[in-house]
């Protein structure tokens, strides 16, 4: 554990809580991609199956359970509790375009051809593209509420901090997880364009972010 990793996990948690509170307090999931949230729930489910096989630390176990619970709670709010506020017509990203290549790649490129390893690899690859339905939705509607942009900012910050964590671990422990690092870098690239808009539009302006 190092400061980048801890800060990354905290940003990830903050992002998820921001989204959950936004939906809960506004009683609405307008502008939120339910598909991205379902993908994140699948990511956590397939990655954290090792909860049943290895014990790493109390921190590790608690965070995994919290991420799982919060991601399912988010999906529940979007598709059940506040489903009448959900803009399904704007959440039109075709999931098979992500799932088919990700499933294929996780069978081809993994550390061991075992069910748990393939599912772990699948979760890493899927996480790297899971935000695409949300970004697609913002591009389609041309705007995002500022609270949604804060969510995306913390999610992007989490990814950037994980890269710092890997640089740190490489230099201090010689640790290098090729699958996680390559996917993590790809994932972070998706946020760069958004970061630019966030700083220029949201932080300097007020209210919604509108695309140029």
């Amino acid at each position: 554990m190092n400061i980048f990793r801890l800060a990354g996990d905290v940003c990830h948690l903050v992002a998820i809580i921001i989204l959950l509170l936004k939906i809960w307090r506004s009683r609405s999931c307008a502008g939120i991609s339910g598909k991205s949230q379902v993908l994140f729930a699948i990511v956590f489910t397939t990655r954290y199956l090792d909860l049943f096989t290895v014990f790493i630390s109390p921190y590790n176990t608690i965070m995994k359970v919290v991420f799982l619970a919060l991601s399912y709670a988010t999906v529940y709010l979007i598709y059940m509790r506040f489903r009448n506020t959900f803009n399904s017509e704007n959440d039109s990203f075709r999931l098979e375009f992500l799932l088919v290549p990700v499933i294929g790649l996780s069978f081809l490129e993994n550390y061991a051809f075992t069910p748990l390893e393939i599912l772990w690899t699948f979760s890493i690859f899927l996480e790297s593209v899971a935000i695409m339905p949300q970004l697609f939705m913002i591009t389609k509607t041309g705007e995002a509420e500022s609270i949604t942009t804060h969510y995306l900012f913390f999610l992007g910050l989490y990814r950037a901090l994980y890269i710092a964590n890997w640089v740190w671990r490489y230099h201090t422990e010689g640790f290098f997880d090729q699958i996680a690092v390559v996917s993590g870098v790809v994932q972070t690239i998706f946020y760069i364009d958004f970061f630019y808009l966030y700083v220029t539009k949201v932080l300097r302006g007020r209210g919604k972010m509108t695309l140029p």
Binding site: S57, N60, Y111, A112, W120, D177
Partner: peptide
């Protein structure tokens, strides 16, 4: 598999 690193990251 003993070659696999423990996946301690979230």
């Amino acid at each position: 598999d003993e070659d696999l690193q423990t996946k301690d990251e979230l």
